[in-house]
Write a protein that binds this DNA or RNA. Structure first.
Lengths: 202, 202
DNA sequence: AATTCGATATGACAAATGTCACTAGGTCAC
DNA sequence: GTGACCTAGTGACATTTGTCATATCGAATT
């Protein structure tokens, strides 16, 4: 009978190893490779041609979503599943655009993982249900500039410094921040940044 | 021959299950229970009396450090090991004060876990080396008030609102924020909060 | 009783931030 | 080529924040 070959990309060494152990216990699943960063994963995937790639999102250098996009752009025939801590609708939207077949949360019980993998292998999609709902009406209202200005404000830079980094006038920066805050119903830049980050828009 | 009994507390379902699988593969280690929150873990530990408790820090309701303190205050004879994402010196100091025997990072390779557990069982301490260094000169300079004020400022509340929540005058709040910022070499409340959080002081 | 100390508060001032109305140039569709 | 729209900028003003010197008051110390 056909066993499912799977490649794992996850930057937390402990989880990477533990997931391998978990999946190794399943008779019909075969872990053919693992990596703790996207670059290495991309190499390994091209070599091993797994049925399924299981990847985290937030990793150093490049994100799992970018990995998914690379795979989708290539002629590789493998299905990507995301496994992440973050229930952020922005992430899910981007992941779906990248042709991802599964989006699961690390909060979910580990028993579901193997089951989800088998579903995806059969061609079905597996999206964490609570996320599916929130992703719908939750589109990012921010413009590119607003996003980048917010990102800098978040780390405590003052208007003047943000302006210099982005080659804008301080007044413009304040306008962007003001706009962003009003779009997000925030009272100031701090709150705006917090909200945006929590939604996965930063 | 004596096998090591171990109890796992970890709120991320996926990691909890995967760690169990990982440790189950070791012949001399026996996972006697697991929980995804501190309260449940505390119950389970009293019943199963494990040799070692392996716990995360950040969990809903109560932290793993509080669990360690509870165990240390009780007459239970079990060794606590912390497994966390965060390389924050503040966490480590508090953990050591609570009598913890091991402090490992989730970034570490999973192969080391079993080895560390055996070391601790033999009475040795296992502290992630890079942390040991940074913990030394990195004591929290903040007062309790400064901490709580910073925590609220971080979420975007304005001075007036913080004052109301803490039953202080707005002027006092500003003094505390100003003090905190100067202690942390920050230019404003946002940067101060960022620094403090990153060090594990919030 | 006198002194020291910490926590809290005030007032005053400078600086940064938030808001808004308005201008100027570019691009794009029609 | 006109109008709609986007990006960027300006100026003015109110509000919020950061800083500092100083005051009060009770608890702890001597």
């Amino acid at each position: 009978m056909s066993s499912i070959s799977i490649y794992i990309a996850e930057d937390q060494g402990m989880l990477l190893g533990a997931l391998s152990a978990l999946l190794a216990m399943e008779e019909d699943i075969n872990v053919v490779g693992k990596a703790s960063n996207v670059k290495q994963a991309w190499q390994g995937i091209k070599e091993t041609m797994p049925d399924i790639v299981l990847t985290d999102i937030e990793m150093p250098e490049m994100t799992g979503i970018e990995l998914a996009e690379a795979i989708s752009d290539s002629d590789l025939d493998c299905k990507v599943m995301i496994l992440t801590t973050f229930a952020r609708s922005g992430y899910l939207s981007r992941a779906l655009d990248a042709g991802v077949r599964g989006y699961m949360l690390k909060d979910a019980p580990s028993e579901e993982l193997a089951a989800s993998i088998r579903k995806v292998q059969k061609g079905r999609k597996v999206i964490d249900p609570e996320l599916m709902l929130s992703a719908w009406d939750n589109k990012d209202p921010l413009s590119d500039k607003e996003r980048s200005v917010l990102r800098l404000a978040e780390s405590g830079l003052k208007t003047e410094e943000i302006a210099q980094k982005l080659f804008l006038s301080p007044g413009t920066v304040r306008n962007y921040l003001s706009n962003a805050a009003s779009k997000l119903n925030a009272n100031n830049r701090i709150e705006a940044a917090r909200i945006a980050r929590q939604k996965g828009w930063l």
